[in-house]
Design a protein around this nucleic acid. Structure first.
Lengths: 196, 196
DNA sequence: CAAAAATTTTAATCTAGATTAAAATAATGC
DNA sequence: GCATTATTTTAATCTAGATTAAAATTTTTG
């Protein structure tokens, strides 16, 4: 055990593990990926994973927490940098997609919350709800400042988030495609928000 | 075995089964749902399902084929009824969402194609690709007839389809909500397509 | 370099869930 | 009502994959 450099070592391995797991989960789902799948991506044995997590459920849980952190971060930066609500939404879309298709590896899409422990489930649901609320709040500010046309913010949020969350289903790590998504999606998804 | 009324009986049960399975799969994924889960929804024993399908994989496969049929149908009706490309897209969105949130039970979202048999996988992928092409073709017609602004049809298709495919993740059979989705989504998702 | 701590592997165990076969029940045709 | 066919259940198998414990290996520290 250690102060900092070694804690970092453990953390780094664990992080690589979460990335590998996220890749598997996005592709084959929670139950569909075996710990062996994840371990293989890392050149390890399945049993080795238990050195880093208590069990498989905790692995998803950590993936989700990590994704939530990245999402919150993407939103925070967008709010900090954008002036109008519209600009903030656009920045957020771009930032978030960057997390998803970026080279630091994929983020897990939170698509199997039912598989979590009740306690973990509640926690993740709470975070997720907060995130949605944050998104809707930006929309509302945009409506207030006139940069976004009045709309059902809940449904609009669901639509935009859905389009983003679905990306891992068809995107598989092609760098050229990553560029294209990053260029096109923010425009496509925000275009409909503008007032006439 | 039978001519027609009995064939219908078998078909009907099988259809109920596909609906139940679709509900489970959408909620918990392929590997996440046991045959017992599906059987319970029908008031049956898991073993009884084998009277209708060869195995679990065939069950997903049939769910996917069924969803594909409904999707093709929704698109065909949209093309038949709409005049401009824009109108057709809008109609298609509404028709498809109606399949998803409608009362005849949910359609399976094709999110776990990797779990299929190679042969089934190829077939479903082919159908799915054709569907995407159909969607993009409508977009292109819309661009040609001036009802839709020029855009990257591939990315636009991915965005719109993604938003739709994600619906089952947050929609859970509330009738009032179904109305709301059906009212809002076609507008939200098509608004950005209009030329300036 | 040797001791201690950290990391990984090997080898079992344990269980849920898919699948099957045989038996039981229900429905239908005559 | 009887014989046949359709449907479902009961009761076993069988297997993949999660989990664990102990042993082996690697890394770190002094």
């Amino acid at each position: 055990m250690a102060r900092n450099p070694e804690e970092t070592r453990f953390q780094l391995q664990r992080d690589r593990m979460l990335t590998a797991a996220a890749r598997c989960f996005n592709q084959k789902g929670y139950s569909g990926t075996s710990l062996k799948d994840v371990a293989n991506l890392l050149g390890l044995t399945d049993a080795a994973l238990y050195y880093y997590v208590r069990n498989k459920e905790e692995l998803v849980y950590l993936c989700y927490v990590r994704a939530a952190d990245a999402g919150r971060d993407a939103m925070q930066r967008a709010v900090d940098q954008g002036v109008t609500g519209f600009e903030q939404i656009r920045l957020y879309i771009r930032n978030h997609i960057e997390c998803i298709v970026g080279e630091n590896g994929p983020l897990a899409i939170m698509s199997e919350i039912p598989s979590l422990t009740p306690s973990h489930r509640d926690e993740v649901l709470e975070i997720s709800r907060k995130h949605s609320k944050g998104f809707e709040a930006i929309l509302e500010r945009g409506i207030a400042d006139g940069s976004i046309a009045p709309c059902d913010v809940r449904m609009t949020g669901n639509a935009i988030m859905g389009a983003i969350n679905w990306i891992p289903k068809w995107f598989h790590g092609d760098a050229a495609m990553a560029e294209r998504v990053l260029d096109e999606f923010p425009e496509i998804l925000s275009r409909g928000l503008r007032p006439d």
